[in-house]
């Protein structure tokens, strides 16, 4: 007897759960993400096929499991929407070939492949990987589906538009840079969170929304929704997201209460950058996460704390990838020390 579950169904539901986040992403940042997704997925499937063939594994069951698609999707969300196609392709191939298959393939890789791919891109192509776009409302030139595609694939911009004009640092990046220049959080937000008319007058882009980055907070909301659905479907357990978001919020709250001028609010941290995507989709990758309930709480909390530390005091504006990879390393240790109490045994 077997329950109607399979790896394929698990992966498909994870992909489905990304739809609200994706919709918000397209709504606020244009069509670039769709190209990223398509490129990343195509390359991932090709890389997966080649690797399976080289390793002499049966193609059908492993291609149908959908795990390569999930990796590709997570990576695509982490790459700026207007990144050239080869950036996405290299990242996707690296994730599948090196981070997944060279470590033994599905179920054996110690590090989250999408995050390995992302970090590789970040250190190799810093310019491409940090050139994000502002929300469409404030874009100098909101590109159409075809125009975005043409730029990503060929690097050709519509006439009269420069690349620099199209791009904008992310809210987390802006916050970090400005804090570094000695401005207070309130000043930065006031300066950058103006209403549309004022901002046009001062020619600054209002990238801060009500709680997080403008647009970003809605994407985060979309991923939160999808993630809750995954918990409801018991595809993922609540332990990692709760522990990660909780630890991040507590850290943020602590420092926000101590020095609100120097540190952003907990809500800002929860609804900016890749927090929600990370909490529900990246950190919960079962292969690279801790396995026992207690272990998952520790693992999630570790990611939350590391994320905050790197965001607040590290060199990078966002840090989900680094935090996840660092905690991936700690998983064997966590699994060793946090075994559940077995029925009929006293707690060790």
């Amino acid at each position: 007897m077997h329950a109607p579950v399979s790896v394929t169904r698990v992966m498909l539901q994870v992909l489905l759960a990304m739809i609200p986040g994706l919709a918000a992403y397209i709504w606020f940042f244009g069509w670039g993400i769709v190209y990223n997704l398509l490129i990343a997925m195509t390359v991932a499937v090709v890389a997966e096929t080649v690797m399976l063939a080289l390793r002499g594994r049966p193609l059908r069951p492993y291609l149908l499991d959908g795990s390569a698609l999930v990796t590709a999707a997570l990576l695509a969300f982490a790459i700026p929407p207007l990144a050239p196609w080869w950036v996405t392709a290299i990242g996707s191939a690296f994730a599948i070939v090196v981070a997944k298959h060279l470590y033994g393939g599905l179920g054996y890789n110690p590090f989250n492949p999408a995050m390995v791919g992302y970090v590789m891109l970040l250190v190799s192509f810093p310019r491409e990987m940090t050139s994000w776009v502002p929300p469409l409302d404030f874009s100098v030139y909101p590109m159409s589906f075809l125009e975005a595609g043409r730029y990503i694939l060929t690097g050709q911009l519509p006439a009269g538009v420069t690349f620099d004009a199209l791009t904008e640092a992310t809210p987390l990046d802006t916050l970090k840079t400005n804090l570094g220049m000695g401005n207070t959080v309130a000043e930065i937000r006031a300066q950058l969170g103006l209403d549309e008319a004022t901002s046009r007058l001062l020619s600054v882009i209002p990238i801060f929304g009500a709680i997080g980055g403008k647009g970003w907070e809605w994407i985060a909301g979309g991923f939160l929704l999808g993630g809750l659905w995954l918990i409801h479907r018991r595809i993922i357990s609540w332990h990692i997201p709760l522990a990660m978001l909780g630890a991040l919020a507590i850290m943020a709250l602590l420092f926000y209460l101590i020095a609100p001028d120097r540190y952003a609010s907990p809500l800002f941290h929860l609804f900016s950058g890749a927090t929600m995507l990370g909490a529900f989709f990246i950190a919960t990758d079962p292969v690279t996460a801790a396995s026992s309930p207690m272990g998952r709480l520790i693992y999630g909390a570790g990611i939350g704390i590391l994320t905050y530390i790197i965001r607040a005091w590290g060199g990078y504006p966002d840090s989900i990838a680094f935090a996840v990879l660092l905690m991936n390393m700690a998983v064997p240790l966590i699994d060793h020390y946090f075994k559940p109490r077995v029925f009929g045994h006293d707690r060790d």
Partner: peptide, 11 residues
Amino acid sequence: MPCIRCGACAD
């Protein structure tokens, strides 16, 4: 398929 360490069995 290989174990994906999902933990459903432990649950």
